[in-house]
Amino acid sequence: MKENFFQVRDLTKVYRMGEVEVHALRGVNMELYAGELVVLLGPSGSGKSTLLNIMGGLDTATAGIVAYRGKELTQATEKELTEYRRFHVGFVFQFYNLISSLTARENVAVVTEIAANPMSPEKALDLVGLTDRLNHFPAQLSGGEQQRVAIARAISKNPTVLLCDEPTGALDSKTGILVLQALERINRELGTATAIITHNVDIAGMADRVIHLSNGKIAEVSKNKVKKSASELQW
């Protein structure tokens, strides 16, 4: 039995948008196991980003529990959450969020400088196939390249978990597949548990498990009998 990294129990999130109360999550239960690649699938507004943000220690829950390796994130202090993000979890976002004043290598170094057990920035960039773009600034990189720098940055600390929020959302399909290949390789070679959020059904093919979210609830959890490789995907 693989270690269960995340235990999510009855997770509820209500936030206010002006005058309106929005129920983003309505009692979600799920797990994420070591080495697993999970795709969280759902239309926009289904609550998948909220779930990922809470799991990543970026947002607080209204009720329920999220435990990372037995430690309740929902009870953690601001300082503990910062440490959690610093040492254990890697993020990839739709809009890359690179530091525009730093080169690819330096953007990765931003993380390796503060991490406990990092790999070298060069190695991280090699893993995403950007060895020849080390000294380029974000403004000199294509969208797909920028996203791969973001992935290199996320994995460079050797995180136990990689959380990706619509990593291909801003990319065309060809570039998107390159990015997914990078994620697949990390998952395979480093064994990093990976959760990918997407509304793109075709991406679900590369997952071990697919969690369908709808209207703040988990509608269905399915296992892929045959896991596709990222290069086989198309949309």
């Binding site: 990543g56 970026l58 300082k79 910062t82 440490e83 959690y84 993000r85 610093r86 040492f87 993020f91 969020n97 690179l98 530091i99 525009s100 931003v110 993380v111 503060i114 991490a115 940055r153 600390k157």
Partner: peptide, 16 residues
Amino acid sequence: SRELSSLRVLGYTRGE
């Protein structure tokens, strides 16, 4: 603010 938030997400403290 976007850049600084990204750094916070990457585990940088408020002080940093």
